[in-house]
Nucleic acid binder design. Structure first.
Length: 552
DNA sequence: AATGCACGCCAC
DNA sequence: AAACGTGGCGTGCATT
């Protein structure tokens, strides 16, 4: 698929933006044309060339694409050299494959990496990097899957830039109503909301600590002990176990204080703005590949932690609707597929995988199914979760074997790979030092204990890496496919939010049903792209709503 | 005054 | 149910 598509390599230089058309992809892609355009003419030229549906190759989508978006130009496909380089380097980490990267030019590029985008690379370097990546891909284990990953990662970069540009519809009045209901009217600058002041006074009275700042864990712990309460920490879930008149107002204080500091009026002032078109939007910066497993990160405004409390402020514009879709139990389904575990896939066939486990007698309750499964994915070692594990091992030896194997590899200091080939980092030097120390002649029991602890810690990381990373790949493919379908619907419906296994599309009312259908079709398509005919499905919960708060 | 860390809580 | 995976971020507090 990449082979037949023409590529246009884009690089900025002093004399203008260089566009090099590679008539066909694949090794030795022939240069058929080269031109230099003034930066101000670039959007128009990109728009012209886009009619032939090329793949745009550039150093960094996050810096190259936004100017095009501001000029009203969107592209269908790209290859993001920065993101793909990072994946390829990790994938080819073991000698002798790394020789592909050992040229002096590659080292220079590695040094220049932080400048990618910020300081444009010379056009010849961009072209050379493109060819190096082509060669590296050919040398990689499972080049077909890795090519899919590079395409998905690059598509994600486009989507991230577009979503950051478009923003999430945000109703300031709706948000202010939520805040007023819970916290009281907006306090004057330098003052705190009435509800917090009142609760703080209650806590102070009940603990007989008139000057207590409940936001200080140190002070709070001391005050609790002064009142005869033996708390180990000030975490809410521990405090909840305690019977004392101070606890209820304290928990309420913590909840509201969190809302006020994280998503209160200050957050509104900082992150919600009126766009040139007069609409109010929250514009988080999405960071594809920002998490080691391949999940996205975000910067600014805490977009990946939007509390349910304030989701009612995400309101569609008049005449528009939100289509909210999330995948039910994505990670266990992905695990079943990557393990080729037919029995687990069969148990997952319905909408509710956890209930499926109960129905097949694997565990007795849905709650147990959930803790057992999450425990398997995270590496739980204690409690009910760990106790239920043997049942899962017996029922789904192949699936559990995949995560157990990943854990063993991590404990041994080896890398693991996701389904499409994203490779985990090696443990840090300090980890190796601790392991070495434990194997020395004069190692103490403490040395060995520490080494075992660190080894198991890293094993839990690699265990989760393979599943979380493969789930992230599925989600990327889902979104990329959905983006294509939304373009086919005419381009008005567009993605406005993404949260690991959940998307929000903003669409004209009339197209809401078509969008809902597209979201489901994209999920099925992503499943086939990754796992072929393996019979695992990815059921969605889809809601057509005018505000995000109504979606769950 | 700026910086870094610990804590705690939000999301998945 | 318990504190086991990935993150961002606000606050307090010690350090520079």
């Amino acid at each position: 698929m990449t082979g037949a598509r023409a590529e246009v390599v884009l690089a900025a230089a002093a004399d203008g933006v260089h566009l090099t058309v590679l008539a066909r992809g694949g090794p030795g892609g022939a240069t058929s044309a080269h031109e230099v355009v003034p930066p101000r003419d670039l959007p128009a030229r990109v728009r012209e060339l886009e009619t032939a549906h090329p793949r745009w190759v550039w150093a960094d989508t996050a810096t190259s694409y936004p100017p095009l978006l501001r000029a009203g130009v969107r592209v269908e496909r790209c290859h993001d050299l920065r993101l793909c380089r990072s994946i390829l380097r990790a994938a080819l980490g073991a000698p002798p494959l790394s020789e592909v990267w050992d040229s002096a030019a590659a080292d220079e590029l590695a040094d220049a990496l932080p400048l990618f985008g910020a300081q444009p690379l010379p056009p010849e370097e961009v072209l050379a990097e493109r060819e190096r990546q082509r060669a590296a891909l050919a040398h990689a284990p499972e080049p077909g899957r890795l090519a899919t990953l590079l395409a998905a990662e690059s598509a994600g970069a486009l989507i991230a830039a577009e979503m950051s540009h478009d923003g999430l519809p945000w109703s300031v009045p709706a948000h202010e109503r939520i805040l007023a209901d819970l916290l009281g009217p907006r306090p004057r600058p330098g003052f705190r909301p009435a509800a917090l002041e009142r609760l703080q006074e209650q806590v102070r009275t009940e603990l007989a600590a008139p000057r207590l700042n409940p936001d200080s864990p140190v002070e709070l712990l001391r005050a609790l002990r002064g009142a005869g309460i033996e708390a180990r920490t000030t975490r809410s879930w521990e405090l909840r176990e305690i019977e004392h008149p101070a606890i209820a107002p304290l928990l309420e204080y913590k909840k509201l204080a969190r809302l006020h500091t994280a998503n209160g009026w200050a957050w509104l002032d900082a992150w919600v703005h009126t766009d040139p078109d007069g609409r109010t939007r929250f514009h988080p910066e999405y960071v594809p590949g920002g998490v080691v497993t391949g999940r996205w990160a975000t910067r600014g405004g805490g977009a990946l932690q939007l509390p349910r409390q304030v989701r009612g402020a995400v309101v569609a514009d008049p005449g528009w609707t939100l289509v909210v879709a999330d995948v039910a139990q994505l990670e266990p389904r992905v695990l079943a597929a990557m393990a080729r575990d037919e029995r687990m896939a069969e148990a997952a066939r319905g909408r509710d995988l956890y209930q499926g486990l109960v129905d097949r007698g694997v565990v007795d309750t849905r709650a147990h199914a959930k803790v057992a499964m999450l425990g398997a994915l995270y590496g739980a070692t204690t409690g009910a979760s760990a106790e239920l594990m043997p049942r899962l091992v017996r029922a789904f030896p192949r699936a559990i074997g995949v995560v157990e194997d990943a854990a063993r590899r991590g404990e041994a200091g080896d890398v693991v790979r996701t389904w499409l080939g994203r490779t985990s980092p090696l443990p840090p030097a300090s980890w190796n030092a601790v392991q070495r120390r434990a194997s020395e002649q004069d190692a103490t029991a403490a040395d060995r204990r520490r080494a075992g602890q660190r080894a198991r810690d890293w094993g839990r990381f690699t265990r989760n890496f393979v599943v979380q990373g493969t789930a992230a790949e599925w989600a990327l493919c889902w979104m990329a496919d959905l983006r294509g379908r939304l373009r086919e619907l005419g381009g008005e419906p567009h993605l406005v939010f993404f949260l690991h296994d959940e998307v929000v599309v903003l669409t004209p009312d009339a197209l809401a049903d078509d969008v809902a259908t597209a979201v489901g079709a994209a999920a099925a398509s992503a499943g086939r792209l990754l796992f072929g005919t393996f019979p695992v499905d990815f059921p969605l919960d889809v809601a057509i709503v005018d505000d995000y708060g109504k979606a769950d």
